[in-house]
Computed example of a mutant assay.
Amino acid sequence: MMQLNIKNETSRLRAVVLGTAVNNGPTPTIKEAYDPKSLEHIAAGTYPIEKDMAVEMLAFQAVLQKYDVEVYRPVIIENYNQIFARDIGFVIDDVFVKSNILPDRERELDAIAYVIEQLAPLKVLRPPQEVHIEGGDVMLWNDHIFIGTYKGRDYKDYITARTNMAGVNYIRSLFPDKIVKEFDLVKSKLEARDNALHLDCCFQPVGKNKGIIYKRGFREEADYLYLVDLFGEENLFHIERNEMYHMFSNVFSIDENVVVSERNFTRLNNWLREKGFTVEEIPYAEIAKQEGLLRCSTLPLIRE
């Protein structure tokens, strides 16, 4: 039996599911695009190809293995995008929650069944049908659980709105002792620079008390200020609209002082080093074209 343990985003990582870009399938049509950034690249003929994305994911795997992290990969499904493992499930404490994802992504969960089978059955939960929640919107910070959502009345019109208030309340009911704080995110179907697909597109903690944040990703200033109060203005790295678009807040922590980042994120990487972090830089710009980056590609199982 595997003993799950995730209490925050930055403690020493021991086991993780890393998605795969192998047998990723053909470039989707404009109609098939799930998000405005993919749409933009499909239309421009710059959508990433499998060969380039597979190389990027191997670089990520190599860094994880360098730090002795046990890396699980999904079973390959032919012609199918399985890069973003974060969407399909998440761990809180010692509980694995399966996401109610977009229906045509259900097979991605089947591809990690061999991992889920190693868990105690009572520790694996599937929310009721009306609950929409994806791992990119769920962020643990010790006694806090941060959850990205969209409170607009037009929620159902947005394929980019992935977590509803029923999802927030479901997590509240499961973890009554935690402070569950939801954040109302800005969504756009057509402009990727104004679309916070998940909470990790506009915020992520690093280290013990720092974070990366994009103020305009929050529909309510009060939500942004909540994080400023919690972390302290001086501990937050503020990113700009274009940096949000390139997914600057979607780095990934292997430890409290080790962050995996995209090699082109010069401004961020310099700041992290100034703050005493070891920055493992890898190429990930092709995968970024699908509106997901390093955190999106991982599903952490065990942190110390």
Rank of each mutant, 00 (worst) to 15 (best):
residue 124 V to Q: 10
residue 64 L to N: 01
residue 130 E to A: 12
residue 60 F to A: 09
residue 87 D to R: 01
residue 135 G to E: 06
residue 119 L to R: 02
residue 69 V to P: 03
residue 73 R to F: 11
residue 138 V to P: 01
residue 121 P to L: 02
residue 104 D to C: 10
residue 142 N to G: 05
residue 100 N to C: 06
residue 41 H to P: 03
residue 34 Y to T: 12
residue 73 R to K: 12
residue 69 V to E: 00
residue 123 K to D: 13
residue 51 K to G: 03
residue 129 Q to G: 03
residue 92 I to D: 04
residue 60 F to V: 08
residue 47 Y to Q: 00
residue 143 D to P: 07
residue 121 P to C: 06
residue 123 K to L: 08
residue 29 T to A: 09
residue 87 D to C: 04
residue 138 V to G: 00
residue 49 I to D: 12
residue 100 N to K: 10
residue 136 G to E: 10
residue 79 N to M: 01
residue 39 L to Q: 04
residue 95 V to S: 02
residue 52 D to P: 05
residue 78 E to Q: 09
residue 96 F to Q: 02
residue 98 K to W: 08
residue 56 E to A: 04
residue 82 Q to F: 00
residue 58 L to I: 11
residue 51 K to E: 15
residue 51 K to Y: 13
residue 37 K to W: 11
residue 131 V to I: 08
residue 116 I to M: 08
residue 46 T to H: 03
residue 42 I to M: 10
residue 60 F to Q: 11
residue 101 I to Y: 12
residue 81 N to V: 14
residue 92 I to H: 02
residue 40 E to S: 10
residue 107 R to K: 13
residue 48 P to K: 01
residue 61 Q to Y: 02
residue 56 E to N: 05
residue 59 A to D: 12
residue 134 E to G: 05
residue 110 D to A: 13
residue 48 P to M: 08
residue 41 H to C: 04
residue 93 D to M: 08
residue 115 V to N: 07
residue 47 Y to E: 04
residue 89 G to Q: 01
residue 72 Y to A: 07
residue 107 R to C: 11
residue 131 V to W: 09
residue 111 A to E: 05
residue 116 I to A: 00
residue 114 Y to D: 08
residue 112 I to H: 11
residue 44 A to T: 08
residue 65 Q to H: 05
residue 139 M to K: 07
residue 57 M to I: 13
residue 93 D to T: 04
residue 102 L to C: 09
residue 133 I to W: 00
residue 86 R to P: 02
residue 69 V to L: 00
residue 43 A to N: 12
residue 29 T to F: 09
residue 59 A to Y: 06
residue 42 I to R: 13
residue 59 A to R: 06
residue 34 Y to N: 15
residue 112 I to R: 08
residue 90 F to H: 07
residue 60 F to L: 14
residue 33 A to Y: 07
residue 68 D to T: 00
residue 80 Y to C: 12
residue 131 V to G: 03
residue 95 V to F: 03
residue 61 Q to G: 02
residue 40 E to G: 04
residue 109 L to K: 13
residue 36 P to F: 02
residue 85 A to Q: 08
residue 107 R to G: 13
residue 141 W to R: 02
residue 57 M to G: 00
residue 33 A to E: 00
residue 118 Q to C: 09
residue 49 I to G: 05
residue 128 P to I: 07
residue 63 V to P: 04
residue 52 D to I: 07
residue 106 E to T: 13
residue 80 Y to F: 15
residue 113 A to T: 13
residue 84 F to D: 01
